[in-house]
Design a protein around this nucleic acid. Structure first.
Lengths: 347, 347
DNA sequence: CATTAGCACTCTTAGGCATTGAGTGCTAAC
DNA sequence: GTTAGCACTCAATGCCTAAGAGTGCTAATG
């Protein structure tokens, strides 16, 4: 049996109500609504059908009904309209980006906290996967003792620094020359190419400092890799606002699932090929999130996918709203990243 | 009436038990303990005295007794012995510092997460207040457009970067010369002196680029100030493991109190003149923490106090253990900071 | 023939009440 | 000074009932 129009409307009404209240929805609740001119009995018959079809579930006889994950899936795929953000909301979102930021990292952090503040769910942001970014400046700065700092600046204003140990036989003068050579060699190189043949190529010209050079490159690469895996998490405790998690032990379970930050990295990485992705309940990979839904979006610099951002919340999530917020956020973030150096655009 | 030896022993037994179980302690519980050869009745008499003196409280007649804040205070001041950390525990703490770190910021973060992991309480760390740190290297790195990055490296390996807008009439060559001049001018200067007369002094020599220079200094100062106020918080949700907060609404209240990060800054700042500080219950300044105890310690670089680190937990906290852990942590952190460039010491 | 009124039935929830048990305080005996 | 004994208190537990929300079915209705 296919769902006819009336069934769809009823299903939607049930989902809407349940998202709001988290309580099983009864037939009378629906029939009372102004836009339904049906008695509760009729609704009951329809609901009974919907249950048989797998869209509704009863916690027990004589409770109301609760939407199944199948219902959410149907809602997301077929019913849902993108929610319209109010001017006020859009302003609120922008205001998070107005404060001047100097680094991608803090931008990512701000995005995460904006997302969680606005949605009241838990937000995660995968920082830019900087493969395509270009090196703008490299410098080795001598510190006290035999230590030095490698400072790396990219064209997006991204800055990294790696602590190095300088070989004993290198003078300050040597180091400076060495620094200049590296700078010349790596200038304008894409980060994901630093790793490959380019290095071998360059390293041949390095002569006696070859070992030191390779050392640096290795440290640099490890460092870059690590930093791009650090998923920014915000508002994890928002979950406490939802009655689904009023049981502390459940809340603990949820929070524990977020703890292993690699979990979240996998989650976002996987979703980062799609413009948007919505996974509901058991569809979620880390099985501990089987009572949640996850919505993610991908952000870009130019046309290049750079990372993704997402929301984790109860399955009765406000899908359309979250999606709109993510969409707007994705845009804001992409713009902010692209024009990191021309922030005024956003004003 | 002064507390005699037996009363003290009984009080300690009650506190110990309560810290463990979070349940009111009855007279029989104490009299059963092998090291007491007293009947429950005797214990009851003593407990009754202790209650009269304000060291114990009864939630209601015929529950057991619960230590008052006065009891914790007494315990901390008079009874408590520093707990001995096992070799295993010390190793665990060290292991957090072994992983190579390149920045003070990540060190601070690691410290916070180590503290919360190990104690199972909520940890806070005030990053180094870098007044006494010296500038090692300053460089202005041109980026695309009219933007540039000011990179600042201190002798502790601390690195900051600030985004700048370059005046239109400055060529790349000008910028480089300018960069060198700033570097020469600020080299080896203490951060807290960057702000004062030194600047005025220098700025006079800057000629036409004076406005730009003052601009930079202002941005730098604001930036440094902001970053030193960012208290690192970790394990906030550990609170969920304690039955005191098994009521979700209480947990929410606690978490909300931590949210205003300025709260925590004030807390740590205030405590940072003392080697150790323990505040119990109502003694705590942000009134929302009146059901908690806060223990803080100050860490140094050399003999200079740099910042502080602390633990927030229920008043029935494992004081002696936490204190020992903080002490060891403080040491490890001080060492790691001082020898940031000679990490091997820690191995 | 779809819709609906009516009614019996189910199951949760909340309140009331007695019971239990942990714990106290007091007194009298050791 | 210590302790055994006992009456007393009070939260927690379990049980029962009543109320209420909701269902499913049947028979009547337009």
């Amino acid at each position: 049996m296919e769902l006819d129009h009336r069934k769809i409307r009823i299903l939607q009404a049930i989902i809407d109500d349940y998202i709001l209240t988290a309580a099983p929805v009864g037939s009378r609740t629906i029939s009372k609504r102004a836009d339904f001119n049906l008695s509760s009995a009729t609704i009951r018959n329809e609901m009974s059908d919907l249950e048989e079809l797998g869209y509704l579930e009863q916690p027990h006889t004589s409770a109301g009904r609760v939407p199944s994950n199948k219902a959410y899936r149907f809602y997301v795929n077929r019913i849902m309209q993108r929610a319209q953000l109010s001017e006020h909301e859009r302003k609120a979102i922008r205001s998070y980006f107005i404060e001047r930021m100097d680094q991608v990292e803090s931008l990512v952090r701000q995005t995460a906290s904006a997302l969680s503040d606005i949605t009241r769910y838990t937000a995660i942001v995968l920082p830019p996967q900087l493969g395509t970014v270009r090196i703008k400046h490299v410098q080795v700065v001598p510190l006290s003792g035999d230590k030095a700092l490698l400072v790396l600046v990219t064209d997006t204003g991204f800055i990294r620094d790696v602590l190095l140990r300088v070989p004993e036989d290198m003078s300050a003068y040597d180091l400076e020359r060495f620094s200049n050579r590296i700078n010349d060699a790596l200038f304008d190189m894409r980060l994901d190419q630093v790793a490959v043949e380019a290095i071998l190529h360059i390293s041949e010209e390095m002569g006696s400092q070859r070992a030191f050079f390779l050392n640096i490159m290795e440290a640099l690469e490890r460092h870059i890799q690590e930093s791009t895996k650090k998923v920014e998490l915000s508002g994890a405790t928002n979950i406490l606002y939802y009655p689904e998690y009023s049981d502390v032990s459940k809340a603990k379970g949820f929070l524990a699932a977020l703890e292993g930050s690699d979990t979240l990295y996998q989650l976002l990485k996987k979703a980062s090929t799609l413009e948007f992705s919505i996974t509901i309940g058991e569809e979620n990979e880390p099985k501990q999130l089987k009572d949640c839904s996850v919505i993610t979006a991908t952000y870009r610099i130019g046309s290049e996918p750079m990372g993704s951002l997402g929301i984790i919340g109860p399955t009765r999530m406000h899908y359309s709203r979250v999606l709109s917020i993510l969409e707007y956020m994705q845009l804001s973030l992409s713009e902010a990243l692209a024009g990191l150096l021309e922030q005024d655009k956003l004003e």
